[in-house]
Amino acid sequence: MTKKRFLDIAVPAVTGLCVLFVIVAIGAIMINIIVNGWSQISLKFLTSAPEEGMTAGGIFPAIMGTFYRTIIMSLVGVPVGTLTAIFLCEYVSANSPLLRMVRFAVNTLAGIPSIVFGLFGLGFFVQFVGPGMDSIFSAEGQIQWAQPNILWASLTMAVLTLPVVIVSVEESIRTVPHDIREASLALGATRWQTIWRVVVPNSITGILTGAVLAVSRGAGEVAPILFTGAAYFLPNLTHSLSDQFMDLGYHVYIMSTQSPDVDATRGIQYGTTLVLLCLTFTLNAAAIILRYRMRKRVNA
């Protein structure tokens, strides 16, 4: 075999092995989690609260806590992110310095470590906004908002996931053809009417994709909620915005590191991890399918 022939086979083989190795390694890890977690998961595990000092029972409050906080997060983050993307596409020209500044800020925001968002949530919402709200809304001397709760955790997470929404919505707004915008404007519609009746309906898939990706990212993050609202154990479900909450990811962390008997609760840890993984994968698969349909429409 000549050297040329050898290299022609070896280079694709070696680089292919790189991909294969990583996928097989991570795949093996995932299979391990699925095998260990599957035996734990039952209807009771998913629908009951922890019992006997967290060594038995289920993870229902954690599922609901994660559910609530991602809902609150999306209610705030998705509109703001969408409006930002609309601003970037419809209100500033492609070479304006403002566009570059906003884009740079979005990139910066995406690169800030998640624990720094946790510090921001504590320093801004809990220590700054909270006392302000207490001095207006709460009775004298009573602390209601100046403490970690689900609202602050969700808002912190909304800031963290903002770049995900912006990038996804912007991509889809840019695919809306210019002629239909111009047609709308030519018919006498105002800029806002054009946006609301033409641009937004045509990029709804992108907004959905952004929302789903943000929920997936937000649901799995733990560092930002460590000090802004997550609780180890709560006797009741979260009822109000000023309550703390239990959380799936936080549950995995706390059960596997701080629980009095780590080995006795391995089953619960694997079960919770599997639930969290299923949630993330389902959401991301949904986002991939949405995006695929969007791109097919553009190419058609």
């Binding site: 991570i26 997936s216 799995g220 995995v252 596997s256 391995r266 840890q269 993984l277 993330t280 994968f281």
Partner: peptide
């Protein structure tokens, strides 16, 4: 999909 695995899951993998 692999990029979407939450970091707390990675921590759990490391720990176990």
């Amino acid at each position: 999909l692999l990029a979407a695995i939450p970091s707390v899951v990675w921590g759990f993998i490391g720990l176990t």
